[in-house]
């Protein structure tokens, strides 16, 4: 059987989740490899969540939030940026590779962008293959 990546997507409630909704109502197609978890803000996403996702078998993790300046909580996504930069370095050092993590800004009106980014990211992970941290049994 060909490799189907498992991708975990962390979406913020105010923009990106709206974008996913928009993609749905506009009947835009995107791969069904992503599993969406909704957060109230992308600034709530603790680096632990991302590393735990990888430990529990995710091949890629996508973080999405409001555009800079549009955060519902004013500067929640500034924190996301710092954590994203931190996580990239962490994943590179650990050996998983930072290319398995992505950060995208999607406003509630950008259903098109959301579906595009999901497609792109799924293709990227498909090329990279299964996450190296997964054991043979998974």
């Amino acid at each position: 059987m060909s490799f189907e990546p498992k991708i975990l997507a962390f979406l913020c409630n105010w923009c990106s989740y709206g974008a996913a909704d928009m993609a749905g109502t506009s009947r835009l197609q995107y791969p069904s490899n992503i599993r969406i978890i909704r957060f109230m803000c992308s600034g709530r996403i603790d680096p632990n969540f991302v590393i735990e996702a990888f430990l529990r078998g995710a091949d890629g993790v996508m973080i999405t939030g409001c555009h800079i300046g549009d955060c519902h909580y004013i500067d929640g996504n500034y924190k996301t940026v710092h954590r994203y930069e931190f996580l990239k370095e962490y994943l590179d050092t650990l050996g998983i590779g930072s290319e398995r993590l992505t950060l995208e800004w999607c406003s509630a009106a950008e259903g098109m962008k959301f579906s595009q980014k999901v497609t792109e990211f799924t293709e990227r992970i498909r090329k990279l293959g299964p996450s190296p941290i997964k054991g043979d049994e998974q």
């Binding site: 632990n48 590393i51 430990l55 931190f86 050092t93 650990l94």
Partner: peptide
């Protein structure tokens, strides 16, 4: 959080160590 983890889980790296690596980075 690192204390609330099960040391017997079958994860490739225990969550205890991954969180400690995160915190100490």
């Amino acid at each position: 959080k690192c204390m609330q983890m099960d040391p017997d889980d079958s994860l490739p790296i225990s969550i205890f160590h991954s969180i400690r690596l995160l915190h100490l980075t």
